[in-house]
Design a binder for these strands. Structure first.
Lengths: 189, 189
DNA sequence: TCAAAGTTAGACCAATCAGTCTATTTAGAG
DNA sequence: CTCTAAATAGACTGATTGGTCTAACTTTGA
């Protein structure tokens, strides 16, 4: 069973836009990579923008949890789930090399298009809230503000994997992010 | 005395590329914003790429120190200079709203063009080394690795100001980055 | 079996892209 | 003033952009 056309398009567009950016990816590149004619593509999506917004909601959004391995395990405290997730990022080669796809698209599109801004922000907020929940489900020092800590965690992980796309390696990421790990551990009671 | 044409071009290109990105900024936009004819622009720069690379070395590079207010003051310890600099970032509105110009260009261009990658990396390395130097000139706990700590500092600052271009505010940045401040303070002897 | 709907196919379009070219104006040196 | 080089001016080009349109093929349900 071959993959339905629409799904294949979303996969290809996700990959190309992730690496080349929105403006760096042309419809011609997408058609070539998909191996489909133009008519098919515009049958499923009425414009480039609508197509990439579909990638945001149907590819990036549902995979954020998977990317960051934030599946809550009942057996451990929230903060330990989080610590494990931060380390597991190093296992995702694409993520370490190219940075977070949501963050990349955010930087390129949010300043110039409010539809992208809204779509991206809602995913970001969902991720932040999920992390906040994990933190609230942990024994931390009382004066720790969970929401800003969530933001700090996301910021430093995204920052670490975006420092240098080509120089980035698993080892380097682990070294850099070890400081976040240290800090988080120091917040435990 | 009006600003020389070449300098004006660099200023305009810096601003437009900072906000719209490389591929999001057309030569036509640049000409219009500068109010000059095409002949002038191509008299000073032989291509768009060379022009933006000139912006990297003649605008972004010399202003990195200024951006991050990393001017060493003899009177205080390195880490205190650093702590002050991290807070002073909040005073730079553009920086807090749109993120670091070097980081933005890095994410867009480094994966697809090695000339940009090299130019950006060398600036990044210079910044990291400067911060490392400040750290080495500080009384920190002995087991702290200064180089990875520099990377972590840059990563979390860049990450914090890139989280949400339009939602970003001074106050939010300070809240997020307070965790970095806490961590750094905890490393002092 | 046949018509309708869904899908594929790609020629075609106006607008825009980065870049070239020649002509003209301006500025400085002698 | 005169000559030369620098700078300005913008028409023009071929390639590429996102997007449209009609025709044909395939699938589906009656």
């Amino acid at each position: 069973m071959t993959q339905p056309t629409r799904e294949k398009i979303l996969d290809v567009v996700f990959k190309l836009v992730y690496i080349n950016g929105y403006n760096g990816t042309s419809m011609a590149m997408i058609l070539k990579e998909c191996g489909i004619p133009k008519g098919s593509l515009y049958h499923y999506f009425k414009s480039k923008k609508e197509m990439v917004l579909a990638v945001v909601s149907e590819r990036i959004n549902p995979r954020m949890d998977e990317f960051y391995q934030l599946n809550v395990e009942e057996s451990q405290e929230g903060i330990d789930t989080l610590l494990a997730a931060i380390l597991k990022v190093s296992k995702k080669e694409l993520l370490v090399s190219y940075g977070c796809p949501l963050n990349r698209l955010n930087q390129e599109m949010s300043p110039v298009d409010s539809d992208f801004e809204k779509a991206i922000n809602s995913i970001y907020n969902r991720l932040r809230d999920k992390i906040t929940l994990l933190l609230e489900n942990s024994q931390l020092k009382l004066d720790v503000d969970k929401e800003s800590l969530s933001e700090f965690i996301i910021a430093s992980v995204w920052g670490s994997i975006s420092l240098s796309p080509t120089q980035s390696t698993t080892g380097r990421y682990i070294q850099t992010i070890s400081h976040l790990i240290n800090y988080l551990k120091s917040l435990k009671v």
